[in-house]
Amino acid sequence: MRVKLAIISFTTAIPVLLAGCGSGDEAAGTAAAGESSTINIGFLAPAPRNDGGFTQYALAGVQAAVDADPKLKLTSIVDNASESQEQIEGLQSLAAKNKVVVADGAVLNKAVAVVAPKYPDTHFVLIASDLEALADNVSSVTVAVGLNAMVAGAVASNESKSKKIGMIAGPEVPSSTAWYYGMAQGAKIENPQTQVAQAYTNDYNDVGKAKQAAEAMIANGVDQILSDLDSGSEGIYQAADGKAGTGVYNVFALHCDENKNIIGSGIVNWSDVLKTAVTEAAAGKLASGAISFGLKSGALSFQFCPGKGTDEQKALAEKITKDISDGTVTPGDGVLLPKPSYAFEQR
């Protein structure tokens, strides 16, 4: 059952230690008397904080920024805000009490666009998506996940016996479709005959929907599947267990101990990205507009699970990574998020 929307202030399993949210009489971002130098930070996500994936890693990055600077305080978390009205109300509650508000998820771009103009003194850090128009108090932070997907697609193509591979994601948002387009380009580099399927469950954590989507792919001959999901990945694991020779690939982090079929992962170090973004936002150094972290930033890499990956596949992954980094291979349409019309920084 989905948890009712609330601003929560207690120790969580991540672990994250939170102070009280403060009273409604406090100015945004200002702590109680005697602590006026404290910069309060709020965090909102559409998924559970302990989802084992995107949200948990992001929140760990925020906590790392707080741990590194005694002036920062993570005061409030809103998680499980899956509906648009919950997201708007949650952001408003956080913005009233915090100097920096992290909106952690591509689906939050519309809510941020609605709420940010009402709180000009609060700096919103939107993760994994851009706004349609520049907002002076919003920094949208993304990573070029499609570059990792190119490497994953090439490896999966090489591993595939059927030359049919697939990608399963939650909502069909640009940060997820980039995984598909990147896989498709990487697969074609490895073998022009490889076919790439895509499916969207509209939920990062629904195990049943993920299993159903994976079983449908496998029935159509797909034998390598990338999971752009959080706890919903379990459904793909279950489907892969039912069909010998099906390989699975994760995103964000290695989860090698979760299933024997996992080959590797397109690592996205969201924790470091969030730590950097929050630290800069709190110091007033995170520019408004769009910021993308790429290969050169060290935020991305493809890694194999121990004992997985042939020598040929490891050499292939290294070569494609190098070719992307030095410009020998140019990402195709859809691999990178569209550059917004306003200020953009590539790191």
Rank of each mutant, 00 (worst) to 15 (best):
E172C: 15
I291Q: 12
Q92I: 12
A156Q: 08
S9P: 00
E258P: 04
K110F: 05
D206F: 01
L286R: 13
G61S: 03
D311P: 03
A68P: 01
I14M: 07
S37K: 12
V251T: 10
L286N: 14
K188C: 06
L316T: 00
L316A: 01
L72R: 01
I263E: 03
D230P: 09
V155N: 00
N202I: 04
S233W: 08
K97W: 09
G235P: 10
W179A: 00
F304W: 03
Q92L: 14
K285G: 05
E132P: 05
P46E: 00
Q224T: 14
P331T: 01
K211F: 05
D25Y: 06
A113G: 11
Q346S: 07
G289T: 04
A111Q: 02
D51Q: 11
T12Y: 11
V112D: 06
M150P: 04
A178N: 06
P120S: 12
T279V: 00
V102S: 07
G53I: 06
A281K: 02
F54C: 04
G153R: 00
K211H: 04
I7W: 05
A65V: 04
T276S: 08
K322I: 04
T310D: 10
A214K: 14
V101H: 07
T279A: 00
S157G: 07
K110L: 01
A287M: 13
K260C: 10
A128V: 09
G22V: 04
G90K: 09
M1V: 14
P174T: 05
A58T: 09
P331L: 08
A178S: 12
A31D: 12
D136K: 08
K161E: 12
A197W: 09
A277N: 02
V196N: 07
V66I: 02
G146A: 13
M150I: 07
A299H: 06
A152Y: 06
D69F: 00
A133P: 06
A315V: 07
K314A: 02
A244Q: 10
S82D: 10
D51V: 12
A239E: 00
V196K: 07
H255I: 11
L5A: 15
V143P: 03
Y249R: 14
Y342E: 13
D25Q: 15
T122P: 10
G221M: 08
A240N: 02
E190A: 07
L72S: 03
N158Y: 12
K314L: 03
G298D: 05
P338N: 11
D130S: 01
E172Q: 15
V143N: 07
L147Q: 04
I77Q: 01
N137Q: 12
A58S: 13
K188F: 02
Q56S: 01
I262A: 04
D203I: 01
A277H: 03
Q212T: 15
N50S: 05
A178M: 13
T246L: 08
A32V: 00
A152V: 10
A33L: 15
G242D: 05
N220A: 14
V278M: 13
T122F: 09
K164D: 01
L18K: 03
Q195L: 07
A315F: 05
Q87N: 09
S297D: 04
K161G: 12
L17A: 11
D241M: 14
